[in-house]
Amino acid sequence: MTTTPVMSPVPATDRTTGRAERRAAAARTKLSSPAASVIAIVIAVLWTVPTLGLLVTSFRPELAIRRSGWWTSVTDPQFTLDNYNEVLYGGTNFASLFVNSLVITLPAVVIPITLALLAAYAFAWINFRGRNILFVAVFALQVVPIQVTLIPLLSLYVDTGLNGSFWTIWLSHSIFALPLAVFLLHNFMKDIPASLVEAARVDGAGHVRIFFQVLLPLLTPAIAAFGVFQFLWVWNDLLVALTFAGGAPDVVPLTVRVAELAGTRGSDWFLLAAGAFVSMVLPLLVFLGLQRYFVRGLLAGSVKG
């Protein structure tokens, strides 16, 4: 190792920063080994170039896409917005599908989070008989794959006359999100010091007031974390939308049509590329903007297990 350990007695804070620096220095030597840098760079390139390729393609004229690879844009740049114009307002009408995706997603995020917050509160702070058994049961329902529920749910929706409307998708996404949401938010809720809740109780606050005035403000980061998670999940979902809205053109979201285009017009890359990016732009923006919360939710959900 190139750095020498500091032996002289130094204040504790200095010592830790010194250590951090040394670890950083060690990391630098680690990456300065050529093999390690090459591996890291190859992985980074493999993970970005495919997306970049389709993005560039989505701005190239139809004829150019057919005749040459997107990498030729470096030497022969030809760009147009025609593909987006066609895919958004042409026969494929992605503009209205974008609205469908949005209309599907917002309630499918708000409803399960609200329900799960209330349930998580009860599991964490209300004493009632059978609480632990019920909580374990809800937790265990995470095991059930969505596939197992689809056909019975579909016939339930047909029987109640809801089939082919937004309600089926809102309901389904809300239900499927609940076990994980209750579990995650319960974890966050348990971390809040009991003394806060006790103090409010002594002041005579009922459960509803404690929930709204004491806990909710403290849970904002957790709500944001799960919110981003659920937003991406619903917006990007194919299975639920295909099953419950596959035959309803006024409800069907972007993912279903993009998947369909990939099957029926698999070589029309001017449409596919632009269409795929129309479906990706909002989740990418949300993700980049709220990445911090997303990582938090991910770590809370998976590492706590």
Binding site: T48, L232, N236, L238, T255, A262, P283, V286
Partner: peptide
Amino acid sequence: AKALIFLPMAISMVGAGVIWKF
């Protein structure tokens, strides 16, 4: 470096399918 690898997580599997089909 992490953001680059992370980005596909925001893309739907359908979108990723289209990207790689190309």
